[in-house]
C-alpha cells in the first residue's frame, strides 16, 4: 500500500529536487551551494525513485547510465584546466570572459564554472551509481 503512495510521490518530488539542485548549483559561486551540494540534492531525487520503483526505472530517467556521468564529469573538470594552460601558461588557472545576453544581461563565464559543473556531474554519477549498485544487489525491490 505504501509502495503505491511512494510511487505516486516520486515524480513531483524528483522535479522539485532537480529544480532545487539546479538552483543551488547555479548560485553556488556567490551564495551557499555549489557542485557538491547540488549533486547530492540531485542524486537524492533519483535514489528516491530507485527505492520507490526500482533501479532500472531510475536509470532510465537519468537518460544515460550513471557511470557515464562519472566519466563525463571527470573529463569536464580536466578539460577546464586547459584554457589556463594556454592563456596563462599555468594549468587550472581560472580564465574568465563576459558575454552579453539580451535578456539576462552580463553573464560572467569562466573555467571554474566548467570545473564546478564537472564536479556536479561527476559526484552525481558517483552517488547514484553507488546507491543503485547497493539497491540492485541487495534486491531492494
Amino acid at each position: 500500500m505504501d509502495k503505491t503512495v511512494l510511487q505516486l510521490a516520486y515524480k513531483p518530488l524528483r522535479v522539485i529536487l532537480i529544480i532545487v539542485s539546479m538552483y543551488y548549483f547555479l548560485r553556488g559561486h556567490n551564495s551557499p551551494g555549489g557542485g557538491f551540494i547540488g549533486a547530492l540534492i540531485l542524486s537524492a531525487g533519483f535514489i528516491f525513485q530507485a527505492m520507490a520503483v526500482n533501479t532500472n526505472s531510475a536509470r532510465r530517467s537519468m537518460l544515460i547510465e550513471p557511470e557515464w556521468y562519472i566519466h563525463i564529469g571527470l573529463l569536464m573538470s580536466i578539460v577546464s584546466s586547459i584554457p589556463g594552460w594556454i592563456y596563462v601558461n599555468t594549468p587550472m588557472t581560472g580564465v574568465w570572459t563576459t558575454i552579453n545576453l539580451p535578456l539576462a544581461g552580463d553573464i560572467k563565464l569562466g573555467t571554474p564554472l566548467l570545473f564546478d559543473l564537472g564536479v556536479y556531474v561527476c559526484v552525481f554519477g558517483v552517488v547514484t551509481s553507488m546507491s543503485f549498485q547497493f539497491l540492485k544487489h541487495i534486491k531492494w525491490n
Binding site: F36, V126, M130
Partner: peptide, 13 residues
C-alpha cells in the same frame, strides 16, 4: 565529508 561518504559506502559494500 563527501570523501567520507564515498569511503563509508565502499566499506559497506
Amino acid at each position: 565529508i563527501v570523501i567520507g561518504f564515498g569511503l563509508t559506502a565502499f566499506l559497506l559494500a
